[in-house]
């Protein structure tokens, strides 16, 4: 396989290593340990890719996803967590991350 992500999503490739994270709890943890710069850089590029990504992925069954599709899905799911920090909490995120640490995710349809 040549590309990390499906066609049309090359702009997200620099963020694959950091944000294509399998598992809901792991994604939440990644948000919690990330820096504001990392979150803002990812959010800045990914937010406009969300609807195109979901439209593309909705064209397939989840079971039919290939590795590139799964990375794109996991990145969009990471975006759900990151957006709460960037759009909502702003500079309160570090304090909030400490409070969130106690809320252990134990079950998710997307896998923990």
């Amino acid at each position: 396989m040549s590309a990390l992500l499906p066609d049309g999503f090359a702009a997200l490739e620099p963020f694959v290593a950091r944000w294509a994270v399998p598992g809901t709890a792991a994604r939440a943890a990644r948000r919690g340990e990330s820096s504001a710069e990392e979150r803002e850089a990812f959010y800045g590029v990914a937010k406009d890719k969300l609807l195109p990504a979901l439209a593309y992925l909705d064209g397939k069954k989840l079971e039919a996803f290939d590795a590139a599709d799964n990375r794109l899905m996991d990145m969009m799911l990471s975006l759900a967590h990151v957006a709460l920090a960037v759009e909502g909490l702003g500079d309160d995120e570090p304090r909030h991350a400490e409070m969130r640490r106690h809320m252990q995710i134990t079950r998710s349809p997307a896998g923990v």
Binding site: T24, R27, A28, L50, A53, L54, L57, D58, K61, L62, M73, M76, L77, A80, H81, A83, L84, G88, L89, H96, M99, R100, H102, M103, I105, S108, P109, A110
Partner: peptide, 28 residues
């Protein structure tokens, strides 16, 4: 129902994460 498409999976992930954000504040 199951997560039958990417949009449903995304909506559920966001719903979980946003509720958890609020409850974390209560706990403290």
């Amino acid at each position: 129902g199951e997560d039958d498409c990417a949009s449903r999976r995304f909506a559920r992930e966001y719903a979980l994460a946003s509720a958890r954000d609020i409850h974390a504040e209560d706990r403290a």
